[in-house]
């Protein structure tokens, strides 16, 4: 246990420090979100759009912003040629756990920012049960991070990194996206917390299944 979590913690620390120093992903992602939201605002104009459509659009923004930022963790290691160093220093599993933790916090903070901006800017989007909404955001971030981390590890070895990432992620993430969209719709409609429990169970089991499979498979992806 010690040999897993301590190296994983240092990998997480290294990634967060390098991110906070360069702010490469954060700046790019923030601008991406602003651009996407303003396009949505322009296209909506003064029309009254139903909350069904709006909760769908929210997750479209979240999906594509994750797709533009989350592959960074592995692609940057390949670009800087630091893969061999990490391979020498530690076993594959701590690398995966560290990267997954970093991606989770990145996704979570991004999704919170997106949701706050979305709630502020789009007047028709009213959340009647905030408990469901914010639980969905947290569990959805965990699920997105778990699926996108292993795909990022695969994609880092491919030639066309940028274009292939959403292509590979979409079929994997579709059950998750359907679930979070449904949960967001429930939150907008003001359902009771108990009504969304089924959605939360799906999200948690999805995260657990993908993470477990990733831990087993990451070894093959990471070793050359």
């Amino acid at each position: 246990m010690k040999s897993l979590f301590i190296p994983a913690y240092y990998i997480f620390l290294k990634d967060s420090r390098s991110e906070l120093r360069t702010r490469y992903a954060l700046n790019a992602l923030f601008m991406f979100v602003v651009t996407a939201l303003s396009i949505i605002l322009f296209s909506i104009g003064s029309e009254a759009v139903s909350s069904d459509v709006l909760s769908g659009i929210l997750w479209v923004v979240i999906f594509f912003s994750s797709m533009s930022g989350l592959s960074r963790t592995f692609v940057s290691e390949e670009e800087r040629g630091t893969v061999a160093t990490l391979q020498l220093l530690t076993r594959p599993t701590p690398v995966y756990v560290g990267k997954l933790t970093f991606n989770f916090f990145l996704t979570l903070s991004l999704n919170v920012v997106i949701s706050l901006l979305y709630l502020l800017l789009i007047n028709n989007f009213v959340i009647q049960s905030p408990a469901i909404f914010w639980t969905t955001i947290v569990l959805g971030s965990a699920a997105i991070a778990s699926a996108s981390t292993i795909i990022a590890a695969i994609i880092a070895k491919a030639n066309t990194k940028g274009t292939l990432y959403p292509v590979l992620s979409f079929p994997i993430m579709l059950p998750l996206l359907m679930t979070v969209m449904n949960a967001t719709r429930l939150a907008a409609e003001g359902a009771f917390f108990a009504e969304a429990l089924g959605e939360f169970q799906i999200l948690i089991s999805y995260t657990v299944v993908i993470t477990t499979a990733s831990i087993v498979l990451f070894e093959y992806v990471w070793k050359d």
């Binding site: 695969i154 079929p171 499979a213």
Partner: peptide, 9 residues
């Protein structure tokens, strides 16, 4: 690896 990940989801 990809086909296994797709298979479990």
């Amino acid at each position: 690896v990809y086909s296994i990940i797709a298979g479990v989801t």
